[in-house]
Design a protein around this nucleic acid. Structure first.
Lengths: 156, 156
DNA sequence: CCTGTGAGTTGGAAAATCAAACCCATTAAG
DNA sequence: CTTAATGGGTTTGATTTTCCAACTCACAGG
């Protein structure tokens, strides 16, 4: 009998094993803001230095960040997002918008993002095909993995 | 001098204190799929039962899930997303799309989402004002919190 | 009566986090 | 020349979480 330990195969889960650990998405936030230096990350995120070092290694090896020297003698490094890292920014924006809407009173947003169009960014998640916004009621899930239905594993 | 422990005030960080712990977003995934029962969550997520119980309590108290009895005698409960919970689904869809693009070869997506328009959902994050997609190069951040610049704390 | 299901709780070992101190190279100040 | 500061970490030891298996409780079925 197989192990009772095969969770649903899922790209959300896979993405979270890379960026779901504590502080990882905050590292990405700072790095996208242009703050890629170690001490800056420590101050702006408030994470322990050793944990931060671990996360940075992991994000670099995952291809989400790159480490580059901005000075030889003395050697000094900074972290910058890769293309894959930059493509996580929409996730951050969507999460920030959710936090602004549900966790704050009125308009006390700690950060406003300006879009190139000149307006304040209010991110919407839309369907590429029809352009409509993505709402729960409009979605139907189709698991592709063999042995899995929406409800769970079939015929264990 | 103040404590050296005031991280940047940020709705991303605040949102992550609620849904950033291990398994929390996977719980939301399952609950959005309609799988709100305890043993179903254990099987489909692969999380330890005690941790799951802790997460469920937290998500309920945060107003992201509700606990409902679907049977008295014997008492049996299920968890369902609140409106706030449903509004996190776009975050999940965006994260899933990122995982599909960057963590998988070709078209071996473990799950396909169908939009009501009849097409496969490819989520795009767009600007509500102009409708354009959200790319890093088009964004400018404006911190609103006193004492904070994009780079970090000003004049501690 | 014995077994099974659903929804958890309990106990103890293993792993991760935390804060503070330390290290190394280089530059700046007195 | 000695002392202090900066940047980018590593080390150490105490505290928290996580993990896993076993257990509980209430009811239902055969």
């Amino acid at each position: 009998m197989a192990a009772t330990k095969d969770p649903r195969p899922c790209s959300i889960a896979d993405a979270l094993t890379l960026v779901g650990e504590k502080y990882s998405l905050l590292v990405l936030r700072e790095v996208c803001l242009g703050n890629g230096r170690f001490d800056q990350l420590v101050r702006n995120i408030g994470a322990p230095r050793d944990i931060l070092a671990t996360r940075l290694r992991r994000l670099v090896e995952a291809g989400i960040l790159t480490k580059r020297a901005y000075s030889e003698r003395p050697q000094r490094y900074e972290y910058r997002p890769t293309q894959a890292g930059l493509e996580l920014e929409p996730v951050l924006m969507t999460l920030m918008a959710w936090g602004d809407r549900h966790l704050r009173k009125d308009d006390d947003r700690p950060m406003v993002i300006e879009h190139i169009c000149g307006n304040e960014l209010v991110p919407l998640v839309t369907c590429q095909a029809c352009g409509g916004t993505v709402d729960h009621a409009d979605l139907t899930a189709h698991p592709q993995a063999p042995g899995w239905t929406v409800a769970g594993p079939s015929a264990a």
